[in-house]
């Protein structure tokens, strides 16, 4: 797969200005990661593991202290490419309320395009297209604050999508949503990925990560696992030790294996769990 994002041995720290003297808080300690065009990568890690900081390196909001980040071959530290990079890598954040700028849905979706100076007719076309993609076209003239959390978050996605980015980085986009909202967002994400958009999804929900093509686990500023979901979630003990979880079905199969049942240790989906348990229980029945 063609490399789209290259993160090379990146270190990053924040200065804690409130302390006297100011102290240095190192968040990333040598992270290297390549992400290919069209991938769907989930990033897991407890709060403070550095995953949000990593996300902000991808569109030059944060610049690495050491090492470098390349987006489509462009260095993020290169000022000249700043808007080219931000156009290619869109970001969606946790709180939908705090990323919607305008008081009308379509005006908000148009915001990025207005900033990069797209012609009005083209803005109209792209705004409509983006709203249709996330299924919010009929709400284009609504006031955002009257929509549900899931709908607001889809507006935020449309606002990024209108830039026609190659990659969308989502920092816990479902954390503040109810189950219905979460479901809407996951559906949208998968649909975008199927259409070729590279997705980087930071999440605390293991069932969401299990739907990705690849899972990256972070702990104390380092990447400690990077593989397909099946391989990552089969390491249940390791995940628990860094404050993470596994899907319930994985936990169940591991508990049964510990009791001596012969089951594979890499079950992460409901369907697979059902089939295996059915075969196990049916034999004698």
């Amino acid at each position: 797969m063609e490399k789209f994002i290259e993160i090379k041995d990146v270190e990053f720290s924040y200065m804690n200005e409130y302390d006297d003297p100011p102290t240095k808080n190192t968040v990333l300690r040598g992270v290297s990661l390549d992400i290919g065009r069209g991938e769907f990568v989930a990033v897991l890690g407890h709060n403070g593991s550095g995953k949000s900081t990593l996300a902000k390196l991808l569109n030059a909001i944060n610049l690495p202290e050491k090492g470098e980040v390349l987006i489509d071959g462009m260095l993020t530290s290169d000022e000249e490419h700043l808007y080219d990079i931000r156009k290619r890598v869109g970001m969606v954040f946790q709180n939908p309320d705090n990323q919607i700028v305008a008081t009308v849905v379509e005006e908000d979706v148009a915001f990025a395009l207005e900033n990069i100076g797209v012609e009005p007719a083209e803005i109209r076309r792209r705004v409509d297209e983006a709203l249709k993609t996330v299924g919010m076209y009929e709400y284009r003239e609504h006031a955002p604050h009257k929509l549900s959390g899931g709908q607001k978050q889809r507006i935020a996605i449309a606002g990024v999508l209108a830039m026609q980015p190659e990659c969308i980085v989502m920092d816990e986009p479902t954390a503040m949503l109810d189950p219905i909202g979460r479901c809407e967002i996951m559906k949208t994400i998968k649909q975008l990925n199927a259409a070729g958009v590279t997705i980087i999804l930071i999440t605390h929900y293991m069932d969401e990560a299990a739907q990705a093509g690849r899972v990256v686990v972070m702990d104390s500023g380092r990447v400690i696992a990077d593989d397909v979901p099946k391989k990552v979630f089969s390491q249940m003990e390791m995940l628990k030790s860094v404050g993470l979880d596994v899907p319930d079905v994985t936990e169940l199969t591991h508990a049964l294996i510990a009791e001596g049942c012969s089951l594979p240790d890499d079950i992460i989906s409901e369907d697979e769990c059902f089939e295996r348990l059915y075969n196990l229980l049916k034999k004698g029945g």
Binding site: N59, I61, Y83, R86, K87, G90, M91, F93, N95, N98, Q99, V101, E106, E107, A110, F111, A112, L113, E114, N115, I116, G117, V118, E119, P120, I123, R124, V127, A156, G159, V160, M163
Partner: peptide, 22 residues
């Protein structure tokens, strides 16, 4: 958070801005 989101969507003041509605 809003300032960050605006920056991510290429906001850089009024210069060179176009508008959806003319």
């Amino acid at each position: 958070e809003l300032a960050l989101a605006m920056e991510c969507r290429c906001y850089h003041g009024g210069e060179g801005r176009t508008r959806l509605k003319q």
